[in-house]
Computed example of a mutant assay.
Amino acid sequence: MYKVYGDYQSGNCYKVKLMLHLLGLEYEWHSVDILKGETETPEFLKMNPNGKVPVLALEDGTYLWESNAILNFLAHDTDFLPRDSRLRTQVLQWQFFEQYSHEPYIAVARFIQFYLGLPQERLEEYKSLHKGGYKALRVMEQQLQLTPYLVEDSYSIADVALYAYTHVAHQGGFDLDAYPAIQAWLERVAAHPRHVKMVD
């Protein structure tokens, strides 16, 4: 059985939780409080020297970290990771997009507002993050006007990766009213019979 070390409110950790549920895999969840510095303890750093969640503990005693790497591991040889090389590369394209063009803006704005309570000393940073976040949403909207999922017609780990922080973007001050294709996609993803919420 897998063990997951993570924070239930973290979008990166939610990716792993959602993927495990979509695949019907059993796991144990070990809560880690990032605000209390629990990712910086010697015990945690033995699992992930980078001091971040999520961490997936495998049955052989080894550990995987970086949420999108974990998604690729879990989805190997399943319908959530295309076998066609071109489509698989498109999945990677969206995962890189998520980490470099989406998460640094939407997730960080959410962290400042949702985790920290929008402190005055980070207000200007918070406002500046919205420009990049809305740019990322426009890119997604353009694709989702053409296809029901980010990679053609199939629900893949590309969708899992981007759903995690997009569905809680409002907690970072983002308004999705101008993005009907994204809203429809969010509903489509949440309608999967094995879908699980971030906190349930």
Results as ranks from 00 to 15, higher is better:
Tyr2Pro: 05
Gly6Asn: 09
Gly6Ala: 12
Asp7Tyr: 04
Gln9Ile: 15
Gln9Ala: 13
Ser10Gly: 05
Tyr14Asn: 01
Lys15Leu: 07
Lys17Ser: 03
Leu18Pro: 04
Leu20Ala: 05
Leu23Asp: 12
Gly24Ala: 10
Leu25Asn: 09
Tyr27Lys: 02
Glu28Leu: 12
Glu28Pro: 06
Glu28Ile: 11
Trp29Glu: 07
His30Cys: 14
Asp33Glu: 14
Lys36Arg: 15
Thr39Arg: 06
Glu40Lys: 13
Pro42Glu: 10
Phe44Ile: 01
Leu45Trp: 06
Met47Ser: 09
Asn50Trp: 03
Lys52Phe: 02
Pro54Phe: 03
Leu56Val: 06
Leu56Asp: 03
Leu58Ile: 10
Glu59Ala: 13
Asp60Arg: 04
Thr62Gln: 10
Tyr63Phe: 14
Trp65Cys: 07
Ser67Tyr: 03
Ser67Leu: 08
Asn68Glu: 08
Asn68Lys: 11
Leu71Trp: 03
Phe73Val: 05
Ala75Cys: 10
Ala75Val: 08
His76Pro: 00
His76Thr: 14
Asp77Trp: 01
Phe80Met: 08
Pro82Gln: 12
Pro82Ala: 13
Asp84Met: 03
Leu87Tyr: 07
Trp94Gln: 07
Trp94Met: 09
Gln95His: 11
Phe96Asn: 12
Phe96His: 14
Phe96Gly: 09
Phe96Pro: 05
Glu98Gly: 08
Gln99Tyr: 02
Gln99Thr: 04
Ser101Asp: 15
Tyr105Val: 02
Tyr105Asn: 09
Tyr105Ile: 00
Arg110Gln: 12
Arg110Thr: 05
Ile112Trp: 01
Leu116Met: 13
Leu116Asp: 11
Leu116His: 07
Gly117Glu: 12
Gln120Pro: 00
Leu123Glu: 15
Ser128Glu: 13
His130Trp: 15
His130Gln: 10
Lys131Ala: 15
Gly133Lys: 01
Tyr134Cys: 07
Lys135Asn: 14
Ala136Leu: 06
Arg138Phe: 11
Gln142Ile: 02
Gln142Val: 08
Leu144Ala: 06
Gln145Pro: 08
Leu146Ile: 10
Leu150Thr: 06
Leu150Arg: 01
Val151Leu: 10
Glu152Phe: 12
Ser156Ile: 00
Ser156Val: 04
Ser156Glu: 00
Ile157Gln: 02
Ile157Pro: 00
Tyr163Asn: 04
Tyr165Arg: 00
Thr166Gly: 08
His167Arg: 00
Ala169Phe: 01
His170Thr: 08
Gln171Ala: 11
Gly173Gln: 06
Asp177Gly: 03
Tyr179His: 13
Pro180Leu: 02
Ala181Val: 07
Gln183Gly: 08
Gln183Ile: 11
Ala184Asn: 15
Ala184Ile: 14
Leu186Asn: 05
Glu187Val: 09
Glu187Ile: 08
Ala190Ser: 12
His192Trp: 09
Arg194His: 14
Val196Asn: 05
Lys197Tyr: 15
Met198Ile: 09
Val199Arg: 04
